[in-house]
Amino acid sequence: MISLLEVAATVAADEYTESVASSVAYGESETATGLPQLDLSTFGNQIFWLIISLLVLYWVVAKIALPRIGAVLSDRQGAITGDLMAAEEFKLKAKEAEAAYDKALADARAEAGKIVAANRAEIQKDLDAAIAHADAEIAARASESEGRIRQIRDSADSDARDVARDVAAELVRAFGGTTDQAAIDQAVDRRMKGVLQ
């Protein structure tokens, strides 16, 4: 009897475990009854794994990720500031170059002006010399011509005087007067004064 009871108990127990197992297995695809969020039996599991992942995440974020990103951001900020400063420097240099260019241009212009003035002065000097030379030549020629003219005029004067004296002497003689050479000369000189010259 006892063994029979034992057998029955074993069979019942087996059946029970089997049914529990199958119900658990079925529970896999079983639908949720109520909110699974309120199933307290899973809380320990969730909290355990959550704390582990949060600790890992915190360690990585705090020790690796954030210092690296922070360094990259400050590097970039530095690079941008550096570039801006370099750009400012280049701008200043460009301004200086422009000023130097302007100065060079002004210098060249002044130099050119100077050279032009020097050339002009030289040419003027040459010109003045040439003009002076020409003036001197002209003056020489003029005085020479004047001399000749005077000579011609003098000779003409004396010729005229001679002719006038002769004619006067002949006229006096023809009218039967005595020819006083001195008086004739005097009269001719008096008449001739102002005719020539």
Binding site: V24, S41, T42, G44, N45, Q46, F48, W49, L50
Partner: peptide, 11 residues
């Protein structure tokens, strides 16, 4: 069953 250490879909 889901023990505290069981790897689950949450894990």
């Amino acid at each position: 069953p889901v023990h505290w250490y069981t790897p689950t879909n949450v894990t």
